[in-house]
Every structure is written in structure tokens, then in C-alpha cells.
Design a protein around this nucleic acid. Structure first.
Lengths: 337, 337
DNA sequence: TTGTAGGCGTTATCAT
DNA sequence: ATGATAACGCCTACAA
């Protein structure tokens, strides 16, 4: 039951406290040249009227709205919400708000949203793609700085923030080697994903540095699904490939892997260690045993995106693709043999 | 590389087309009393300058910002994103934008966000709780209408939109009966969730109308986890309870159920049909067989929330708890025996 | 220390 | 049909 009364304005506060709007403004904003008594009186009046400054009006004169746009195509929010939270933290939730728009993978809708956001005079834009591959730029010469997160822009003049997938591949292998594994297979998703290729490359490189090669001698590309994890694992077992660890390209694949291993009477991590990717909690914690996984640090991605935007507000925005490190979350599926 | 130039104003457009700002405004907004020639000239000028109206300034005079606040505690976005999309659709994405704030379950932060949103003069508020149980009201006498979605407000004077859980319970049972099942068990989550109780009640009521009772004679409450689904199912099997269908309280529980059934050498849906709840795609489609599930229609929840807000903008806002129907998505896990 | 005045970009009212 | 002008709520010179 809203009290449908017009919110108090600075004018109201000024009148109640018997000063001018200018003085009231100064008093409330902590500017100088206001007597303590006046300041207190104004404060009290504002309190009584439950005055809350109109950020729009403020933005109109300041030339800054304190809003940023988050343009996503991530229908589930799995990417955009952590990124949004990271951005909130970096900006300070009280000074910057986020307008979230979901384009639902539709370029037309994306254009619509972009125009709306610009029309609302957001101070900056974060574009989150649905898959970690280059996506079309939303355009150069926009009146506000833009940072691409997760999915880089295809235009090298744009600034993009992505996970360092090569390093992530190395990270996964290093961990498995550290827990004593030597016969490591890599089951991952769709080979058309650059991220899948990068992680595979990192994995191979790291193995090489340890004088090792992939079990089965090749990366098992397939789909980002549990089913693929299952069938690829079965394939490995049927071919009697010696394996003591499987590095999966996603947590879902890892679930399929574990399922197939269990089905074959093998123990995890006793016989075979399993490492996932994404660190998606609903998968990692409900898996048996709990799944070790690589986290892409999406909150950090959001935080850095915000920092880059802040830097861009004064001075210039960088360009190119910036790679951010992933981190490994060890759980029971990869304890030492 | 942003073109750091001040965006064109209506003033610029007016000057370029040689008319007054008033005329330019009318021309661009399709108002009457503008000659076709003038209108065209203004249009062209706006085009040339890439003019985009400043929504802030517009909102200042109109007394409406065209923004609504979505206050959530849903860390994963699983609830808020669909609700946001529904709201976007109902409002029209071009006339209303959504400010998304995640309180992360922290009341202090929620208060902060609330103040920020009000200060930005959002036209209305949608509050999305993290679990489907009553939550504290964010306060009465707010200057804008508020609708609670998913989690109702504890204050009956607020307007809340929730899923009709009792009906959903009936719906699930009806479906299972329709595909020929008679010995139906119900494995669900934490009994402290009102939603779990409601669904269980609906299930029992519907069974009764078919002259049936729950297999095992009682609802199996536990946790919202795959592990519970697994152990509850094993329990049923150990007790030799005759079962030809299991209605799970969540898709995750359902996964555990299927897992345990398979482990016992039973076929799904051949021996036992399994029905989930939430229709969370990552679970339903990757399950073997694909999982039938009940969808809470979150987009609809968001759409209706938006409609209620729109209605509240003129006239009064309702109050109380409005129940919205769920729908059943049949997949292979519940095909006829 | 305080108040007056101008302007941020738009729209609406009222002359012309 | 067009244009001048006054809001909208706020801030910031500058004047008093």
C-alpha cells in the first residue's frame, strides 16, 4: 500500500528549515561555508521529510548517471550474475547501479537494448557473451566506454576481458600431476570453441613439461554434455587405455565421466581422479565424491571490468584481449592416490 | 575507442534543422501541428547527429523514469533472470529498463540497495526471494508500488505473487496417474519449506481423489539434494515398498532418485516413472532418460509482476498472495508404462 | 555564511 | 505551424 505522495524535494527541505535550496544543498552534501547550526537544521528537516535526493536530476547536471549497462545473452544468469556482483563491488553499490538487459541471443534485441541504455546515458557498458568465443563488436565510436567480458569482441580495438584458458589447461594438469597422476586423459566439449582448444593446448604443454603425454594420445573433443563425458569415458575403458586421471572440459562432462567410471566398477579418486571445469556449485557439490574443478573467477572478471571502466571515465580505455587467471578448487575427486 | 564527444542534444538538432527546440521535440515525438516538411527536416538532422533523447531529462519532467528495480537475493540468477525477462516483455524492453540488485541474503545490503533504487526514482519494485517462503516486507509506505515474486512478503498488506504449490502437487500426481501409475511415492526436500508442505498436501489430496494413497504411506521429507533423493529411494527399495512412480520435490532430488533406481537395476520409466520439479534445463535434459518436470513459469511470474505494477501506476495496488499455476513438461521419464 | 541566478535536456503550455 | 517560456530537481558559480 504505497503512500502515493510525491517524494520530498530539496525545495521542501529548504523551506522547512527556512533556508534557500542552495544552502540546503551545501548542507546535505557536506560542502563548506555552512554554519554548524544551519547544517544541523537542514539535516533534521531532511530526516523529517524522509528526503532522498533525486539521482536523475543530479545526474543531469553532473553529466554522469552512476549507472552502467550490462548487456548479456546469458539466458540463465550463470555468467552475468557473478559478473554483475563483481562489478557492483568494484564500483560500490551505493554509487553505481547496474541496468541488466538480456538480448537472448538476438542481434536485433541487442541493438534495441543498446540504444535504450545509451539513451539512459549509462556511464559505461559491460557486454557478456554466452560462449567464450569472439563475438561481434557492438560498434566503435560509442559515446561511452565498453568492456567485453567472458566473450571477447571480434574487434581488436575493443577491450575484452577473458579467462586465460591456456593457463587454465596447464593449471588442471599441474594439479593432477601434483596429486600423483601420470596417465591423464582430457575429455572436453565442442572443438569449435576456441576456449576448448586453448585449454587443450595448455594441458598438452604442461604435460610435455613433465615429460608426459595425454593418455590415449589425443584430446577427446565432443559436446558439452554429461552424455559425452559418459560415452568418451566408456570409449577409453573399452580401448583399455591406461588412465589414472581425467581432466574434463566442464563440470557436466565430469559428471558423465564419474558416472561411467562408477558404472565400470572404478573408484574416484582411488582408481581415477576426475577434475571438472566451471566450478558450478550445483554440480561440484552434489557429485560423489565432490568434484574438484577450475573456477573462472567470474566475480573477478566483473570487478576488473568495472575497474577498467572507471579508468576509462578519465583518461583512455585500453584495447585488446586481457587474460585473467582461473583458480583451482580442490575437492575429493582429486585427492592424492 | 569511444568518441568522447558530448552526445547531441535536442538543441543541436533544432539548430541544425533551423527550428526551435519545441518544434523539434514535437516533430520527433510524432505530435501534431508540425508540417510534413519540417518533420522530415528535423528527422534528417537527428539522424545526422545520431541524436538519442536523454531519458533522464525526459523522466525529470514526466515524473516517471521508466525504470524498475529488481531486488533479489538469488545468488545464481536462476530465479531472477527468468523473472526479469518476463518483466521486460510485459513492460516492453524499449520503455522500461530493469535495475538489478543482488542483496546476497544480507538485510543491510538490501536496505542499501533499496535506498539507492528509490533515490534513482524507479517507478516500481519487484522483490525476489531466494526461497519460496515468506520473507520480511521491505516496508510499507514506500513511495512506489512493490510486488513480491516467488517468495511472498510476510506482511499481508503487500502484494505477493507465488507459484500455486498445492495445485502443482496435484498436477504432478494427476500426470503420473494419467500415465498409468498407482503406487506413487513422494520424495521431497526440507520440511521447513512451506512450498514443500504445500506440494505434499496437493499430492495427497489428488491421490485421495483417485482413491489412492502414497506409496510407503508418508511423504519423505529430507534435503533438496541429489544425495537425499538417492538415499530416500534406497530406503524405499530396501523396505520393499511397491512403487511404480516417484514424484520428486526438485530436479536434483529426481537425479538422485534415478541414480538409485538404476543402481538397483530398475528401469526408468519402465519399472518406475520419475517426475522432477523446477524444470531446470541443465538437469532435465542431461538426465537419462530426459526428466519430466514441473515448471514454475517464472517468466510468467515476472510478466504478471510487471502487469500488477503497471496497474498500480494508475489506481491502486492490490494486496495479499496471488497464486500462479505451474505447468508440467512431459519428457521420457514419465511415459506410459 | 547565505541567497540569487543560470543551466543540465526535455516536454508542455501558451502565444504568435 | 511554429516558437518563446516555464517547469522538472538539483548543483555551482557568483553576488550579497
Amino acid at each position: 500500500m504505497p503512500a502515493e505522495q510525491r517524494p520530498a524535494t530539496l525545495h521542501d527541505v529548504a523551506r522547512l528549515s527556512g533556508v534557500s535550496v542552495a544552502t540546503a544543498s551545501k548542507a546535505l552534501n557536506g560542502r563548506e561555508h555552512v554554519s554548524a547550526a544551519t547544517r544541523e537544521a537542514v539535516r533534521k528537516a531532511a530526516e523529517m521529510l524522509a528526503y532522498s535526493p533525486n539521482t536523475l536530476a543530479r545526474g543531469l547536471v553532473a553529466g554522469r548517471t552512476g549507472m552502467i549497462g550490462l548487456l548479456t545473452s546469458d539466458l540463465e544468469g550463470r555468467l552475468s550474475i557473478p559478473i554483475l556482483m563483481g562489478a557492483e563491488d568494484a564500483f560500490g553499490a551505493d554509487r553505481t547501479s547496474v541496468l541488466l538487459c538480456d538480448a537472448r541471443g538476438d542481434a536485433i534485441r541487442e541493438g534495441h537494448h543498446l540504444r535504450t541504455l545509451l539513451s539512459r546515458r549509462v556511464d559505461g557498458l559491460i557486454v557478456v557473451g554466452a560462449r567464450p568465443d569472439p563475438r561481434p563488436s557492438i560498434g566503435r565510436d560509442l559515446p561511452v566506454p565498453v568492456v567485453y567480458a567472458y566473450a571477447p569482441s571480434a574487434d581488436p580495438d575493443d577491450l575484452s576481458l577473458v579467462s586465460d584458458n591456456v593457463a587454465a589447461g596447464r593449471l588442471g594438469i599441474r594439479h593432477l600431476v601434483e596429486v600423483g597422476r601420470r596417465r591423464i586423459a582430457h575429455i572436453t566439449g565442442d572443438p569449435s570453441y576456441g576456449a576448448a582448444q586453448d585449454r587443450a593446448r595448455g594441458a598438452r604443454d604442461e604435460l610435455a613439461e613433465h615429460g608426459l603425454r595425454l593418455a590415449g594420445d589425443r584430446v577427446l573433443f565432443g559436446a558439452w554434455s554429461e552424455a559425452w563425458g559418459r560415452s568418451a569415458t566408456r570409449m577409453l575403458l573399452t580401448q583399455r587405455t591406461a588412465v589414472d586421471a581425467i581432466f574434463a572440459g566442464s563440470d557436466q562432462i565430469a559428471r558423465g565421466v564419474i558416472d561411467a567410471l562408477h558404472g565400470a566398477g572404478l573408484e574416484v579418486p582411488g582408481d581415477v581422479a576426475v577434475l571438472g571445469f566451471d566450478n558450478w556449485e550445483i554440480f561440484t557439490t552434489s557429485s560423489t565424491p565432490p568434484l574438484s574443478s577450475i573456477d573462472m573467477n567470474l566475480e573477478t572478471l566483473g570487478r576488473v571490468a568495472a575497474e577498467r571502466l572507471l579508468a576509462a571515465f578519465d583518461g583512455r580505455l585500453g584495447s585488446g584481449v586481457e587474460q585473467l587467471p582461473c583458480r583451482l578448487i580442490p575437492r575429493e575427486s582429486t585427492t592424492a592416490a
